[in-house]
């Protein structure tokens, strides 16, 4: 019950406050390497934000700070108006259920079928079998995988695996979809396919945060772009094409 109160809190507070906020966030490792340097920004609910930058500039680290896989070295990351570094370790899995995540590698569970992989995201939340049996086929149809549901991840193409990963990321209706180079391994057709799905998901009201180094795609979708260079946020334009 307590967890539901936490969720409800996030849900209500998110309505009135800026949704995700970075306040002077830096991240460095003990060895002294500075990954992110004094970054501040706001993301509102329902936005589609693209974070662009070359490999290794800290895009993935920035995303990990959002879903609390890593902690900031200094500064604050706020979700709603709550400093996420204050969330108890035990409650982190529940906090993370606000997010869906997609990565360059699909990170599907190898010994589960596509169907089971997608269903797993609902199972861990204790959703009933009836709901699972109703919703999983629906989402698989949306991402175009109805015919592949009983295949294992190694039996499908990279694009299909990525679509399965996307289905798994959104099936529990997260408030934010975090996509880290989701098209990094894909050919142009499959890339476009995934981008279309991301836009569609955003239309349904889910905030999408997409990190990529693929400037062409970014230009094409024409949404808010944040540019990161050497750990610093060098440009943040509401609606833009990436001009370099």
């Amino acid at each position: 019950m307590r967890f539901d109160i936490v969720m409800l809190y996030y849900f209500l507070v998110g309505r009135f406050m800026s949704f995700i906020r970075f306040e002077n966030v830096s991240k460095s490792y003990a060895q002294g390497a500075i990954i992110l340097d004094d970054i501040s920004f706001d993301i509102d609910q329902g936005e589609f934000v693209t974070i662009i930058g070359a490999s290794g500039v800290g895009k993935s680290t920035l995303l990990r700070l959002i879903y609390a896989e890593q902690k900031a070295s200094s500064g604050r990351v706020l979700f709603g108006d709550k400093d996420i570094s204050l969330i108890k370790k035990k409650l982190l899995p529940f906090y993370r259920r606000n997010f869906g995540t997609v990565f360059q590698d699909s990170k599907l569970l190898e010994n589960k079928t596509i169907y089971e992989n997608v269903a797993y995201a609902l199972e861990v939340q204790g959703k009933g079998n009836a709901q699972i049996e109703e919703e999983v086929p629906k989402i698989l149809e949306i991402v175009g995988l109805s015919h592949q549901y009983d295949k294992y991840p190694h039996q499908v193409s990279g694009g299909e695996a990525q679509r399965a990963s996307l289905a798994r990321a959104v099936i529990h209706r997260p408030r934010v979809l975090v996509a880290d180079e989701p098209t990094g391994n894909l050919d142009p057709d499959a890339t476009w396919n995934i981008m279309q799905l991301l836009l569609k998901i955003n239309e349904f009201g889910t905030t999408v945060i997409l990190a990529t180094h693929d400037t062409q795609t970014v230009d094409h979708i024409n949404r808010r772009v944040m540019v990161i260079q050497e750990g610093r946020l060098v440009s943040d334009k509401a609606q833009s094409k990436y001009a370099g």
Partner: peptide, 16 residues
């Protein structure tokens, strides 16, 4: 080990 990371990302609690 990679699976455990994925499971946690998908929202599984440590106990699960």
């Amino acid at each position: 080990r990679k699976q455990f990371e994925v499971m946690r990302l998908v929202g599984a609690s440590n106990t699960y």
